[in-house]
């Protein structure tokens, strides 16, 4: 499986990554090589094998529905790039 620079730009768009245009060509070559390595998986015989998402066959632990964490809005907003009146600022979304 090999990816063209155009496909790399598409994947980058899906991943919300702005690529340095000078790297797109190199990324295409490298990612194609990685997918070639990964392609070995297609030869594995997996009929009837259940997918394994996690090493411990555990179910999600539940806890009582009680408040356990204090409000830390100020601490969290203190490390944000741009806030105002307790809100996170982003560029204007609606004209």
């Amino acid at each position: 499986m090999s990816l063209s620079p155009e496909q790399i730009r598409q994947v980058a768009k899906l991943a919300r990554l702005e690529l340095n245009p000078s790297l797109t060509e190199a990324y295409a070559g490298q990612i194609s090589n990685i997918l070639e390595l990964v392609g070995q998986l297609s030869a594995a015989r997996t009929e009837g094998v259940g997918p394994m998402a996690h090493p411990l066959e555990m179910t999600q632990r539940l806890r009582a529905d009680e408040v356990t964490q204090p409000d830390q809005r100020e601490a969290f907003q203190a490390i944000a790039p741009a806030v105002q009146d307790g809100l996170y600022l982003v560029p204007k979304v609606i004209e």
Partner: peptide, 11 residues
């Protein structure tokens, strides 16, 4: 890719 990898992971 992903589902097949999860199966091989079990193997």
């Amino acid at each position: 890719y992903y589902l097949q990898a999860q199966k091989v992971r079990r193997l």
